[in-house]
Simulated assay, not measured.
Amino acid sequence: MSRDLEGARELVVGLAVQAGRLQIERRDTLRMGAPKAHANDVVSDVDIASERLIVEAIHAVWPDDAAQAEEGHGRAGASGWTWIVDPLDGTRNYVSRTGPWSVCIALYQGDQPRMAVVHDPAADETFSAVDGGGALLNGEPIHASSGPPLAEALVGVSFQPNPRTKERAGRVLRELLPVSGDIRRVPAALNLVYQAAGRLDGGLALDTNLWDIAAGALIAREAGVTLGGHGPDFTTELTIGAAPALWAELSAKVRAVA
């Protein structure tokens, strides 16, 4: 079953921007819900409202599509197409006003990512990609960095803040900090799209969910970022990305301890 992926991207960019505008407008009046998987896994009524906005609009256009959505608005489908939605990746940053967050929407055909959008509401930046069509930032092409040596590279790190994953992250940081140019902690989706734009030379994400990385991974891949995990394919347990020239050095360091 074919689909107009460019048309889908245009519609979804609009939805992501609309959700981002809602997040900006409601930031001063948000209400927190109970933590989910652990005490640091927070959710607000704005997360839920954003997801409802996105999923309901998508299903008004493609009612037979499935959806996997972080805050519970997923549904089964019969078309073979699935939407992967994280309405607010980086809720802790959003709530505490300590860093960036994003709206993430990806479209899969079977198990293959075909279109993706990551929108940063605070910076008014929209990253997107269509499978085989390259990556864009606000409509302009973007590319991975040239890949400096690890000693000069800026590396993004993302991880779930539960006790087990923080221990893993500690091992990785102890390995990378002495040998890398510098490290930034950012939410997983922005980690990947910053690599796509050449702002980060490489990065890694530990113990994510598919909705955290699905959109960013396609955008990164289309910009020329090399992706993998413990094997040739990245997973939610371990996602490593790097400019091609940096890949061997960075991935070897991370795989040794992650």
Rank of each mutant, 00 (worst) to 15 (best):
N162E: 14
G133I: 01
A122H: 00
D131V: 00
G147I: 01
A169Y: 02
A106Q: 11
P161F: 12
M115N: 07
P100T: 06
A144K: 01
E175W: 02
T126D: 02
A197I: 00
G198L: 00
S102M: 05
N191W: 01
L176E: 03
F159G: 14
G147S: 04
P113E: 06
S146I: 07
R171H: 12
L176Q: 09
R168A: 10
A196D: 04
L136C: 11
P113G: 07
S180G: 06
S180A: 15
R97W: 00
L177K: 11
P178E: 07
A196Q: 01
E125R: 08
R97F: 00
I105C: 08
L200M: 03
Q195M: 15
H143Q: 15
G139A: 10
Y108A: 03
V186T: 11
S102K: 06
L190P: 05
Q112N: 05
L173S: 07
R114V: 08
H119W: 01
D111M: 06
Y108L: 09
S102C: 15
R184C: 07
E140K: 14
G139P: 10
Y108I: 01
L154K: 13
R184D: 04
E140V: 12
L136D: 03
R97T: 05
F127S: 01
Y94M: 07
V155T: 07
V155S: 07
N162W: 11
S145R: 01
P100I: 02
F159H: 14
S145G: 14
T126W: 06
Q112G: 00
Q109T: 00
P161M: 13
H143N: 09
A151S: 15
Q112S: 07
D201S: 14
L192G: 02
Y108D: 10
S158V: 02
P163H: 04
P113V: 08
D182W: 08
G147R: 00
L176I: 08
L177V: 11
D131F: 09
G110L: 00
E140R: 15
A169P: 05
I183H: 08
R184W: 10
I142E: 05
P187H: 05
E140L: 13
R171S: 10
Y94Q: 04
P113A: 09
S180P: 01
P113Y: 05
R114P: 00
P121H: 01
A169C: 12
L192F: 08
G202D: 12
G133A: 14
P141R: 05
A122T: 11
N191T: 15
K166L: 15
C104T: 12
G156N: 04
N191C: 12
Y94N: 04
A135Y: 05
V193N: 04
A129W: 00
E125H: 13
I105P: 09
T91P: 11
